[in-house]
């Protein structure tokens, strides 16, 4: 049975709400719209955007990636540890690859062993945190050499002209992801598989390959996010990703990506993460207490999830 078509508020409503929100916060405290605040908030936004985009891939394929947070923590530690040995550049790449590899394993478990995504990635979450715990003993990693620290920090805290480096990277990656989803076979196949797996298999789509790639991309993007964050902090923190998983799923859904697969994309990811980041920052700048802030963001995410469920319900 079909649903009556209703106005797709996620398409027009959310951007409008976003701009209204910016205006309100600026009125409450003009410092909100200051260059410095915009710079630091977009910097946070860039990191969240990468993670949310990764989650979006998993959601589009009608899956979910619960291991993103722990993969982020892993990348944080792996990056700094690798830099000790390999230097800033090679070390960073090694760290990110570590993260992507976890996603590859997720994908293999899901595609070839048929383990449901929620279980496979949950398992990965535990394994990764376990490995990390054994490896670090929970100690934060710092004290890079001055050269390495300088090089690494540039990725997270540097500027190119008036724009923070992570933002530049996020924009480039964003366009790339948009292109992938819209103009490549892989991208289209994600939507098809996420919408109807039975029909996809009869349409001859390489489902397993796509699934493996999807989870690899999800973890790779989470790893990139973790890398920029680690660079910004110049430290490896074993619990870095813990708080981010909720934001990743919440941001994706808030932007309008469906948890039932096949609906959403980069634009939705961008919207969702901008709303979260600016809402959070705006509330801090307006002097709203931590508890109220968390409650407000939580409510916004829950409402978005509900909206997504209601929209899809028969």
């Amino acid at each position: 049975m079909k649903l009556p078509v209703r106005i797709d508020w996620s398409k027009f409503g959310l951007p409008a709400a976003f701009f209204v929100m910016l205006i309100i916060f600026t009125v409450i405290n003009p410092a909100f719209f200051s260059a410095r605040n915009m710079i630091q908030t977009t910097r946070q936004g860039a990191i969240l955007f990468l993670i949310v985009s990764g989650q979006t891939f998993a959601l589009l394929a009608r899956g979910i990636d619960l291991s993103q947070g722990s993969v982020m923590s892993l990348v944080s530690i792996a990056t700094i540890s690798s830099i000790y040995v390999l230097g800033a550049y090679a070390g960073s790449i090694a760290g990110i690859l570590f993260g992507a590899m976890c996603g590859f394993i997720n994908g293999m478990l899901i595609a070839f062993l048929g383990i449901p995504p929620i279980l496979a990635t949950l398992g990965m979450l535990f394994v990764v945190s376990g490995v990390e715990l054994v490896y670090t003993g929970g100690v934060t990693l710092t004290n890079l050499s001055d050269i390495d620290q300088g090089r690494l920090f540039w990725f997270g805290g540097g500027m190119i002209g008036p724009v923070p480096v992570p933002v530049i990277f996020a924009i480039i990656i964003g366009f790339l992801l948009y292109y992938i989803l819209k103009y490549t076979l892989f991208g289209r196949q994600i939507y098809l598989i996420g919408t109807n797996a039975d029909a996809s298999s009869l349409a001859g789509l390489p489902i397993k390959r796509v699934i493996v790639l999807v989870y690899t991309v999800s973890a790779l993007l989470a790893s990139l996010g973790a890398f920029f964050l680690t660079a910004r902090l110049s430290m490896g923190f074993p619990q870095l990703g813990e708080a981010w998983l909720v934001l990743a799923i919440g941001g994706a859904v808030l932007g309008g990506t469906s948890v039932f697969g096949g609906k959403g994309g980069v634009w939705e990811a961008l919207l969702g993460c901008l709303v979260i980041v600016f809402l959070d920052n705006g509330l801090i700048v307006s002097g709203v207490s931590t508890f109220a802030r968390e409650a407000i963001i939580g409510v916004v995410i829950i409402v978005a999830c509900l909206g997504s469920v209601i929209k899809r319900r028969v």
Binding site: S34, R232, N281, I284
Partner: peptide, 23 residues
Amino acid sequence: TEWTPSSPDAGMKTVEGILQAHP
């Protein structure tokens, strides 16, 4: 007072925001 989880990114984010509200 800002109660925050004990993580560096939460600390950084909060201090950045507060610096805007209270230069």
